[in-house]
Design a protein around this nucleic acid. Structure first.
Length: 518
RNA sequence: CGCAGGAUGGAGCAGCUUGGUAGCUCGUCAGGCUCAUAACCUGAAGGUCGUUGGUUCAAAUCCAACUCCUGCACCCA
């Protein structure tokens, strides 16, 4: 049975995880969680890209074995996923035998088919940077300092016949306008494809680069890192085995906009096509997080956000909520401490956390801790029920369109509606009245709890851990299926759990900033 | 130069595909409430939707021109 198969980009093992990595994984995780709530069986892959020049250089600089270096990085990235509640099903590392063998198999196949040829490549080569450079790299006519000596170099390499497939790819993109999300990115790729494509150099001589997968038909070369890395999407799901068709084609490749073109939008489709494999259904290219005022985030600027610090201080769910709420998928977005705290305070602590808190408190105080049934008659109750149900429909639709910002905005409208409803009914006053008021009180609290229960179910893709805690306080099990999520009696008669503060208030001081370790 | 994205009340955003009284959150001001995490609810102030022209009965939304910001160097989500 074919599953919904989603991948993220595999992270490059040359640097520690940062906000961008965390965001991409959280976005992917939320998509998968939402899909599962629709009853779809899913497979969520992420992993680590371990070969290539940069990793080799870093390992040499540190005097460490590159494999050990990568082992450490894998642990770091996996720990981040764990911390962020990112529940992948499989983690692929490009140094694993299961990957290496598939890469070699594919190279053999393409070679047999005549898609690969050997040719001499000549150009300007920087000895210090250990790579080919171009005339346009010159600054004021001179080579940058860190290039060192630049020499003419001729080198034999293996090339993949990309250019043969350019027309096919353009045709494919024109016929499949939903291949890349958001749509304007697809136009950009088509623009890029107006220029003739060069064949792709897919080998590196071992004299220059040894840290890679050996070319199966020539032991003097290793495979170019991009060619190697992209294959993870099929090597991880058993390419060449009967299981493969349960996964491939992938439904979504979640990637950053920087690696859309040419790697994912050009190399990868052509590689697959040359192998007679179907293409993934969608490339989802997300934007970048910018520092305050739209500045680029970087380690050197010292304005990078450290996701783990936020998770440690505010909880991983608060962090997940922020990035999903604030980023319009596909566009760039700002991350600033002020924005984060504003969201945390207003949405999580005041609106949501406080709603839970007041409901649990009142059920405890006025109903002996047993949740009453939600009312079916009053006008306000009907209105609330109707809004909750339309919210379910709206959120399902938005999540299907990867619009978590829109979905979360709507869920918080529901939370506000519940707060407003309590304000209108004033259960704390009803509690002081006679039998009729007592009946209204029970109807009111039952409705309030039911409303929050539905909101919580909808929040699950964004805040899985917090939702479990909320539902535990409301005394209910998570339904775990949006298709049957209707206003009902599922909370009635349940005993509420222990009331705890889900999102504790944060201090006022500016110093409450997480430590910005450089 | 070219390509792409952006420009909406003090801040951050939505709306633009399928024109029709400008919406959300924060912030500010005034009021209400007391169940609750000094939280919640109500009301108000604040925008000629970058500029200029055009199409139209009607434009933030369509068209044209222009201005400003960002990205397009290996790497980086």
């Amino acid at each position: 049975m074919k599953r919904f198969y989603l991948t993220t980009a595999i992270d490059y093992a040359n640097g520690s995880p940062h906000l961008g990595h965390a965001y991409e994984k959280i976005l992917a995780d939320a998509i998968v969680r939402a899909r599962r709530l629709e009853g779809v069986s899913c497979h969520f892959l992420t992993g680590l890209d371990e070969h290539g020049q940069k990793v080799q250089e870093t390992a040499e600089r540190l005097g460490r074995d590159p494999q050990l270096l990568c082992d450490g990085m894998a642990k770091e990235f996996q720990a981040m996923c764990q911390r962020m509640g990112v529940a992948y099903d499989d983690y692929i590392r490009t140094t694993e035998p299961r990957h290496r063998e598939v890469v070699k198999d594919i190279l053999r196949q393409l070679n047999r088919k005549g898609e690969i040829y050997k040719a001499v490549y000549g150009g300007l080569y920087s000895v210090r940077a250990e790579r080919f450079v171009q005339e346009k790299d010159r600054i004021d006519g001179r080579w940058p300092e860190d290039f060192g000596e630049v020499i003419e170099l001729e080198e034999e390499n293996y090339f993949f016949r990309l250019s043969n497939y350019q027309d096919w790819l353009v045709d494919f993109l024109q016929k499949n306008s939903n291949f890349i999300f958001p749509a304007h990115r697809q136009r950009q790729v088509l623009e890029f494809l107006k220029e003739p494509l060069n064949d792709l150099c897919i080998s590196r001589p071992k004299s220059r680069l040894h840290w890679g997968i050996e070319m199966p038909f020539d032991g003097d070369y290793v495979t170019y890192v991009w060619f190697d890395a992209l294959i993870n999407y099929i090597s991880a799901v058993g390419y060449g085995t009967e299981n493969f068709s349960n996964f491939w084609p992938a439904d979504v490749h979640v990637i950053g906009k920087d690696i859309l073109s040419p790697a994912h939008a050009v190399y990868w489709p052509i590689m697959l096509h040359a192998l007679d494999l179907p293409l993934p259904r969608c490339l989802l290219a997300h934007g970048w997080w910018l520092a305050k005022g739209g500045a680029k985030m970087s380690k050197s600027e010292g304005n990078a956000v450290h996701p783990m610090d936020y998770a440690d201080i505010y909880g991983s769910d608060a962090f997940r909520y922020f990035v999903l709420r604030e980023m319009n998928v596909g566009q760039d977005s700002n991350f600033s401490h002020d924005l984060f705290v504003a969201r945390y305070r207003a949405d999580l602590a005041n609106d949501l956390g406080n709603l839970l808190s007041r409901l649990v408190s009142m059920v405890d105080r006025y109903c002996g801790g047993t949740v009453p049934a939600p009312a079916l008659d009053g006008d306000l109750e009907k209105e609330l029920k109707s809004f909750a149900e339309s919210t379910v429909a709206h959120v399902r639709e938005r999540c299907g369109a990867y619009d978590f910002a829109g979905a979360l905005e709507r869920i918080f409208s529901l939370v506000q509606a519940a707060n407003r409803y309590l304000e209108c009914r004033e259960p704390w006053k009803l509690a002081k009245g006679g039998p009729e008021e007592q009946k209204m009180l029970r109807d009111c609290l039952g409705s309030g709890v039911e409303c929050l229960r539905i909101g919580a179910e909808l929040l699950f893709p964004a805040m899985p851990a917090a939702v479990e805690k909320m539902l535990a306080q409301l005394g209910v099990e998570r339904a775990g299926d949006w298709r049957v999520l209707a206003w009902g009696k599922s909370t009635a008669g349940k005993k509420i759990g222990k009331r705890t503060i889900l999102f504790p208030p944060v201090e006022e001081e500016e110093d409450a900033l997480p430590p910005l370790s450089a």
